[in-house]
Each structure stands twice: as structure tokens, then as C-alpha cells.
Design a protein around this nucleic acid. Sequence first.
DNA 1: GTGGTCTAGACCACC
DNA 2: GTGGTCTAGACCACA
Lengths: 147, 147, 147, 147
Amino acid sequence: MTPAAVRVILSYMGSTLPGGQITFSLDTGSGVPVYRQIIEQIENAVLSGRMRPGDRLPTIRALAVELKINPNTIAKAYNELEIRGILLTQMGSGTYISEKRPAPDEDEHGKKVSLTLERFLREMNELGLDSNAVIKLIKKIPDGGAG
Amino acid sequence: MTPAAVRVILSYMGSTLPGGQITFSLDTGSGVPVYRQIIEQIENAVLSGRMRPGDRLPTIRALAVELKINPNTIAKAYNELEIRGILLTQMGSGTYISEKRPAPDEDEHGKKVSLTLERFLREMNELGLDSNAVIKLIKKIPDGGAG
Amino acid sequence: MTPAAVRVILSYMGSTLPGGQITFSLDTGSGVPVYRQIIEQIENAVLSGRMRPGDRLPTIRALAVELKINPNTIAKAYNELEIRGILLTQMGSGTYISEKRPAPDEDEHGKKVSLTLERFLREMNELGLDSNAVIKLIKKIPDGGAG
Amino acid sequence: MTPAAVRVILSYMGSTLPGGQITFSLDTGSGVPVYRQIIEQIENAVLSGRMRPGDRLPTIRALAVELKINPNTIAKAYNELEIRGILLTQMGSGTYISEKRPAPDEDEHGKKVSLTLERFLREMNELGLDSNAVIKLIKKIPDGGAG
DNA sequence: GTGGTCTAGACCACC
DNA sequence: GTGGTCTAGACCACA
């Protein structure tokens, strides 16, 4: 853990979001490129059902201001998600969760969850904690510890 | 889940390691630079006590062959750890865990653990799982699921 | 005197440097690795107060062109200084003297000066000159002989 | 000044040296390869007249033990000096200052002195000291400060 | 055999 | 444009 992991956590709850709600948190100390963190978080919001087809995303500019990063970085993330068919940009109107995608794919969601869990347990293992120790740790956290 | 997360897991258990033992696993799908993954894993091994002062690390070239990456990438990781005082290189002989490390280990270990836990819970939260759901998930894993 | 001491002296005085100014000189005949010479000279500039927190360093590529060496060599020097907390890199913008450096500067400067003096007098001694002879020699130099 | 400059200073005054006398000091913190330091110091002893044609050098083994370095390193230094015509090895008998070389070449000695002085003044200059400041510093040292 | 230095060049992240 | 990552490969220092 070299430089203190500067962490930017901010929430976005724009009034233009009919059914969706998304919170971005950037972790500049993790080594993961910023644009990938954004992609991941939008993907996760879709997979978990928090964002649904038709939901509107924050504008690039607004999000850039809030996250204090370059608009190009966000544009790149939106762009890649559009290529993957997850987002859809309507020129002049905004960016939306694509309608074409079926409802959150159970399988994808499950894969992502288990992949994340796996990575986490491996790292905890490296740090000398087994599953039981991890469970004890989580139980000690006053609920809501992560969100 | 962007590109399939190609994962390389391999173990190193050189006979020259008296008290140490370290397993490297590269996750090329995570976006984290390879040299940083190596740094992290060595740090973790030291923090958890699996690698101790005086323990010898795999040679740069041997590890490069095993991980199928360029020796310079490993050299970069070792080098950064040497600058930070965690490793010590003896030219012509090899690379070792430094003897010097002062006291604040316990603290560092705790910080790293809670930082890792925090990141994990945030991501699980994004995926729609709260602490209880996470605990249930972990309990379902046949112990040793991640190591 | 082994191989002819090819020496490259060049000055950098980029217009973007508000308060800083640094001159690099490479001595390829000294046996000291190039990247270490660069590190030393930046350290010295900081210790002496010529470069101050916030000052911008030459870009890697510009300096590589001027010194006629590979950009990676300079990147390595900058990188080590960043790990040590002396420099700070802002991606896409450039490399700067870190603002953070704590107090013990005065001390470090003194140590470096006396270490340098000590090494020099030892070598002069090997060459058969004592302190008095050295002083006479220095006095003979038209002031500014070395900078 | 990263790691404290571990310095090994030891003197060699073997009884087998008829007219010569040489002191080796290794500075492992300077970045200069050890074998080059040895070469330099022998050269300097010859240039200054302390070692003269016919004088015997320490054996490789003895010197290796004293300096706590690998005999190969010393062998390499002696070897290079032999190639340059400064030393001469008589199998089974030892290594000597070559008879062929004329008495210490005034010019070479002068060049070496001024080169050393130049490098030193440039570094002091980097550290913010001009010639006068340097002279004051040297005067403050109780004579013998470097030898 | 070990690690260290340097080069050359491709490609990525970010402003 | 900035720096960062990684590769491939030559050559050096040292045990």
C-alpha cells in the first residue's frame, strides 16, 4: 500500500433518472484505470437491476465535474459500453441503458459475483485469512459498512 | 465482465526457500498492471508472515518463465520493493526479504485487510448483495474454494 | 583516466518552469549509471533549493532528446524519485517536485555536502594532494570554472 | 542519498611491498562498480608516485579477504590494468607495477587531478556551493580529514 | 548462474 | 501532447 489510496466517493442521483440510481466511486490507488472503473460500475448497476433499460445516465460533462476527471475518460467508458450494446446514445438527448438488452442476465450476474468473490478470497488468503476469518470480519461491520 | 479474465495460477516452492513460500497468480483481465500484481502479492506474503526476513524470492528469470512474462516486468516489481525497503538484492546471489523492516507491520496488515474488505463489499453492493448475502455466499463455498 | 571521459553538458530552461531551473550533465566516463546521475542531480537541485515543490521537470521525451538517451532511462530515474516521494507525476500533464517533503531537508543537504567533500578529498589524497594543495588549486581557477 | 553509503575502508601495508604502499577504500553507495574503484585507486597510486615500477601488489586472495569481495572482481581489475600495461603478472610470483611505464606521467596526473576537481566542483555547485564556500569548508576540516 | 543497465519500439491511459 | 506498461534483446557486474 504505497500512497494512501485516495478515494473519491460521490453519489449521483439526478432528477432525470426515472427508475435508476447509480453511485460512482473512483479508487485511484488500486491501479485499475479510471475508465474501466466507470465501465464496471455501470455494468454492475445493470446486472444488479438498479439501472434498467431506458434509464438515463448522467451527462458526460456533469459526471466529469463531479468525479473531477477529464470528460474524455467518461466519453471513452460510455463509448465502449455503447459498442458492447449496453448503452445507447441519442444525439442531443442523452445516454440511456439500451432497450435491446434482455433483463439482467442471471448468468452474467452470477459469474460476476463469483469472480469478484473469488478474487477477494484469494487476496484475503494471501493476507492469511481463511473464509471463517473473513465471515467474522464482515459480521463485525455495522450493517451498511460498504454502501 | 469485459474480456474473459484469463488467469494464470502457478506455485513456486523452490527448494532453496527455508521458511518462505509464495504463490503468484496473475489476473490479466483485471486491468491492474502485472508488475503491481506481483508487488501486491509479495507485500501480502510479507504482511501475513508467510514470507519472512531473509527468505529468498524466486529468481527473476525463473519467475519470468513460470509466469510467461518478460523478466524486466518482474525486475521492475522487485526493484520498486527494494526502493521501499521491503526487498534486498544481493548481486549475483538473489533477492531476499529485507531484514530491516521496522515495527508497524501489525498495523499495515490490518489496514490492508480492511481496505481489501471495503473494496470488496462496495463492489458486492454495486452488484446488489448486502453483507448477509455475501456471508451466505461464502458459507456455501466448500472450504478452500479460493486457496 | 580510463576511456576518454565523454561528457555531455546541456542546460534545460524550459519556459514552463516558474521557479525552477535545472541543468543536467552526463558523465559517461565515470562508471555511474546514467539513471543514477539523473537522480542525483535532481536530488541536488532539490536539496540546494534550486528546484522547489511544484516546479515542473522537463518532459521525459524532451530530456531524452536533449541528453541523447532512451526515454526509458529517464522514466526510470523519475520513477524512482516518485517512489521516494521526491517527485510526483500527474498523468497527461507532467512531472513535478512533490509538495509533501517534510522538514529534514537542512540535515540531508549537509550530509550530502560532507559526503561529497569526503569522497573528493580521499581521491585527491590518493593522487598525492593534501587539503592545502587542493585549496591552492581551487583558488587558481578563474571563478565560475565549474558552473 | 538512498541507503546509507556503506563504506569499507581498510588499509593494506603488506610487508612484501618494498617501496609501495596502497590503501583501498570501497564505496558501495556511489554507484561506481567495485572493479572500477580498484582500478582507479591503483592508477592513482601510480600517478601520485606512491606505487612505483617493481612494487608488488597484494595477492588477489589476500585482497579479496580484506575487502570482503569476490576474488574474480579483483582479478578483473588486475587483468584490465595488465592489458593497459600498468601491471604485470608473473605467474607464481605475484603482480607488480610494470617496469615499462615511464615514471608517473606529469600530464596524466594533471589531467586526472583536474578532472576530479572539475567533477567535484560541479557537484558542489549543484548543491549550491561556490568555490569560496568549498574552500571555507575544507579549511574547517582538521587536517588529515581525508586520509 | 545471479541481478543491473540500457536500448528500441509497440501500445495504453489520460489531458 | 503527457507519462505508463510491457516486450525483446544486448551487454555488464558479480558469485
